[in-house]
């Protein structure tokens, strides 16, 4: 309390508590995002384990039989690319909103949202038009099993981004530049920023997962 200009002694008990839980909520957003990534890693880990286990076992020579037509490389690359670009755009415009440019972020976030939704849509198309039967091989099983899960999680991330875009709308642009006059407004801005940071980290994590999955399923099987 010494290094800030705030004067805590002047706070009413209610404001004190509001500030306390406000800060707890900010930390909870930060912690929650990391914890969610941990849980997701273990969930994806089940599929990564299945991938490597079945590949090394190659039971009856049917991990990836030579007769198997692999998934469309162009589709997989495009989906992965869309997600990576979406995450990159979101990360780039995050810097803009940190610099106080709300509209720049809004435009960028919209682009990121459209790219992410396009990836989800394309993924659905790809799963509906697989060139192999799901049970044709070990590889086919892991592929058919993993991507719907990833798809649902990416879709949920996009819903989160959409919520953030809607949440940003009523916040005045000036609030990102200087401290708003009331606690309520300042808290709203800070919570939005915390949620946005958390989202960006999670979305980047999912983009990295998409790259790893792309390497595993399209390049090295």
């Amino acid at each position: 309390m010494t290094q800030t200009s705030a004067e805590p002694a002047g706070l009413s008990p209610e404001a004190e508590e509001a500030g306390f839980y406000h800060e707890a909520a900010l930390n909870a957003t930060w912690t929650g995002a990391r914890l969610a990534m941990g849980a997701l890693s273990f969930g994806f880990g089940a599929f990564v384990f299945a991938y490597f286990y079945l590949r090394s076992l190659n039971s009856h020579g049917r991990w990836y039989p030579s007769t198997l037509t692999g998934p469309h490389l162009w589709a997989g690359t495009l989906i992965m690319g869309l997600i990576v670009v979406s995450a990159a755009v979101q990360t780039a415009v995050l810097q803009r909103i940190k610099a106080g440019h709300k509209t720049a972020w809004q435009r960028g976030a919209l682009v990121a949202l459209v790219l992410g939704l396009a990836a989800v849509g394309l993924q659905i198309w790809e799963l509906l038009n697989l060139p192999f039967f799901p049970g044709a091989a070990g590889f086919a099983s892991v592929f058919t099993g993993f991507y719907p899960v990833y798809l649902v999680i990416a879709l949920m991330a996009m819903i989160w981004l959409e919520m953030l875009i809607m949440r940003c709308r009523p916040i005045a642009e000036i609030s990102f530049v200087e401290q708003p006059p009331t606690f309520v407004e300042a808290f709203a801005v800070q919570r939005f920023q915390a949620a946005l940071s958390a989202f960006t980290v999670v979305w980047n994590y999912l983009a990295a997962t998409a790259v790893v999955a792309w390497v595993l399923f399209y390049l090295v099987h």
Binding site: M1, T2, Q3, T4, A6, P8, A9, L11, S12, P13, E16, E17, G19, F20, E23, A24, L26, N27, T29, W30, K98, Q190, R191, Q193, A194, L196, S197, A198
Partner: peptide
């Protein structure tokens, strides 16, 4: 008064990163 406030003001916040 002030004890609870002392527990959070000045502490690093997630918002500082945003």
């Amino acid at each position: 008064a002030g004890v609870v406030a002392a527990a959070f003001t000045g502490a690093p916040t997630a918002a500082a990163e945003a």
